[in-house]
C-alpha cells in the first residue's frame, strides 16, 4: 500500500493528535486522505477542514511543498508524497 507522509501544524495538529506520521494510504486524492484521518472530536479531518467541498479559508494544505487552492482537494496523491495541513495564523505582524 502506498505510504504518505502527513504533517499537521497548529490546530490541525491538535485535531489529529500528532505532528508527523507516515501512513498507509488506500485512497487516491487529498480529499480521501483528509477523510482517512480521524480527529479527536470523533470526526475526520475532512469534516473539520472542508466546507461545501472547499478547504476552509483558515486552513492551508501543502503537497510536496506546493500550496493547494481551496478547490484543489481532488489532487491525486502518490506513494512518497508529503502532505502538510495547517491552520493559518492571521496575525503575523508586518513592518
Amino acid at each position: 500500500m502506498p505510504k504518505i507522509h502527513v504533517a499537521a501544524i497548529g490546530m490541525a495538529r491538535k485535531l489529529v493528535g500528532f505532528s508527523q506520521r507516515t501512513i498507509d494510504f488506500s485512497g487516491e486524492t487529498v480529499a480521501d486522505l483528509l477523510r482517512a484521518l480521524n480527529t479527536v472530536d470523533g470526526r475526520t479531518l475532512y469534516a473539520n477542514l472542508v466546507c461545501e467541498g472547499k478547504l476552509r479559508g483558515d486552513y492551508a494544505i501543502l503537497v510536496n511543498g506546493m500550496s493547494l487552492t481551496a478547490e484543489q482537494l481532488e489532487t491525486r496523491l502518490e506513494g512518497g508524497d508529503e502532505v502538510v495541513t495547517m491552520a493559518i495564523l492571521r496575525h503575523l505582524h508586518g513592518g
Partner: peptide, 24 residues
Amino acid sequence: LDDWNDLLNVVCGFVANTTYMLDP
C-alpha cells in the same frame, strides 16, 4: 511551546520539507 514551534515551522519554511520540521 508547541504552537510556537509550529509557527517557526511555518515562518522558517520547514513545512515545505518536513525533514526539517521542529518537534512541537
